[in-house]
Design a protein around this nucleic acid. Structure first.
Lengths: 316, 316
DNA sequence: GACGCTTACGTTCGTCGTAACTATT
DNA sequence: AATAGTTACGACGAACGTAAGCGTC
């Protein structure tokens, strides 16, 4: 048994059971991968993959267990490398963040500014995507941490911690009647065509719940992943924008009207997402604390090494 | 990096930083171990061991972190092998139990009898020792599970689950005055020379606490690890034995007097000990449940994969 | 017939053990 | 002087890549 073999089976599983693709992704030959996998299966005494003739068509029950363990071991290999890097070149490294547009555009800038000043040798990478893509990036270790709008409970290998709370505002063209409406109610807003975030997005479900709770059916004419896109269409007069309060900038958006509507919607929580059992670099703890001061090293470690809340456990 | 290197550094750490001893234990040459360790250190970019000239004299801070991760990985390697064995030869295997004399002699026999009938191909190994030795056997994977009288909280890598509760009796030579003493009190018992378990033992602290609580200073003339030894000395007339109620067998010990003293001492709890993050064989779950029916697979898994209660975490 | 896994084989690289060397106690 | 770790080197074995073979789709 060796680490290579574990990398191979994980990559094959990730590449939908295609050994050739896996060999490709691993920059090695296909027969090599094939052989190593058979050797591992032989050593363990069980088949990991189901074979129909010469094709892989599935994962056996023991294979499932083996893959889970192998994934944890791969994680630990990463941790070892991180330990090495942390102690030999503690100020250098890379930090890969997966997040949504709103966070990247309106929340992260000051955090990143401060971070880069303190850690000039760390290379930052920002990945954008929808919540689903963000979770995948974390799982595949394409991202070290994520900033999302919802708990990541569905993914057993991930953990999420509350970061900050936020609420919404409406943006309108200048001199829009809603700007003078008193009191401002959901009913009033629902009278106008709305432009807001895509359904895939976190905060969106709170919006739907609020309207539904009053028996209202808002006319959402356009959804987007991106606050800037929403504002653009609002300024074209297509409707009223409903977006994160933080996404409105009084200076840049001085040609739009804005009203806070925090009293109409439940607050939403931005969460920090991490892979469980990850060994974090010193600057990663730093970044997280810059993001949200209550997330101390202790709090983070506790979350990383706690048990999953419920549901399936690691074992089979 | 490979698994061999991780085995090597772990063995060196275990052998008190003596590479030659480690090579011996690993059935390989000393230069080979030396070289592999240097290669690993080179790859990670940090020293794992502190060297004074050519001797290893300590573990560096990154080395500490590396060793912890390596230990977890070695655990996972075991888990992989177990998965293989479970699915390829689910009825065969080995079960190594570390426990104290009392458990081995009086609690385990019926459990083991039932177990062997259900799993005739499993080889059982019983290891005896004091609690300290038992914990070490678990940690070194010399034992798969342990039965001890106290929580294993001090060992971060271990977890313990309550198994059963027990209390004590006194045994005396026939016609001893204590057999007729009413009511039977601690004061009465303390008037006689006592023979009981060694201090290293679990239940022993409850005994000391009980006497101390009444301001009594019992005259403990002899301690032993073994109920049979205690009974032998009692039958020689050397004193009164204080031992686990379950260790008295009315038939075999018919030439001794016995009185239950559960009302005088707090109950003690026998606990099942396991290494965290261990993948258990099907028959291991079976054995544990035969030992204590409430320890279902679910309960066990929850304990195995929960976070340590407090104190240091895995990270550095 | 195209795609995909396995077998076969020669080359290359890594690992192992012995022996010689060097440093510490 | 004895013990312990490193360096050097030749032998063995494992892994890799190419090429050919065989099963599915």
């Amino acid at each position: 048994m060796n680490l290579q073999q574990l990398r191979y089976i994980l990559e094959v599983a990730r590449q939908k059971l295609n050994i050739s693709e896996a060999a490709n992704a691993l920059f090695t030959s296909q027969p090599g991968v094939s052989k190593q996998i058979r050797q591992l299966e032989e050593e363990l005494g069980v088949d990991i993959f189901v074979r129909h003739g010469k094709r892989l068509t599935g994962i056996t029950p023991p294979g499932q267990a083996v893959l889970e363990i192998a994934a944890r071991m791969q994680q630990e290999v990463n941790n070892l490398r991180k330990v090495g890097a942390e102690y030999s070149r503690s100020d250098e490294g890379q930090l890969s963040i997966a997040t949504t547009h709103t966070q990247a555009r309106h929340v992260l800038p000051p955090v990143i500014g401060e971070f880069l000043a303190r850690h000039p040798k760390v290379k930052l990478k920002l990945h954008q995507g929808n919540p689903r893509q963000i979770a995948d990036m974390l799982l595949n270790a394409d991202a070290d941490l994520a900033l999302v709008g919802e708990p990541l409970d569905e993914y057993e290998a991930l953990v999420s911690l509350p970061c900050h709370q936020w609420n919404r505002c409406i943006v309108t063209p200048p001199d829009h009647p809603l700007l003078r409406e008193e009191p401002l109610t959901l009913e009033a807003i629902a009278r106008y065509p709305l432009i807001t975030y895509d359904e895939a997005f976190s905060g969106r479900s709170a919006v739907d719940r609020a309207f539904l709770g009053r028996g209202l059916k808002p006319n959402i004419i356009l959804t987007a992943l991106d606050s800037d896109v929403i504002k653009t269409y609002v300024s074209m007069g297509l409707g009223v924008g409903l977006l994160a309060r933080i996404a409105f900038d009084p200076v840049a958006d001085r040609r739009l009207g804005m009203r806070d509507v925090a009293h109409l919607f439940e607050t939403s929580t931005t969460r920090l997402g991490l892979r469980r059992h990850t060994w974090l670099r010193g600057y990663e703890y730093d970044f997280i604390q810059a993001l949200s001061p209550h997330l101390s090293r202790k709090v983070i470690d506790r979350a990383l090494f706690s048990a999953p809340e419920d549901g399936e456990n690691y074992s089979v």
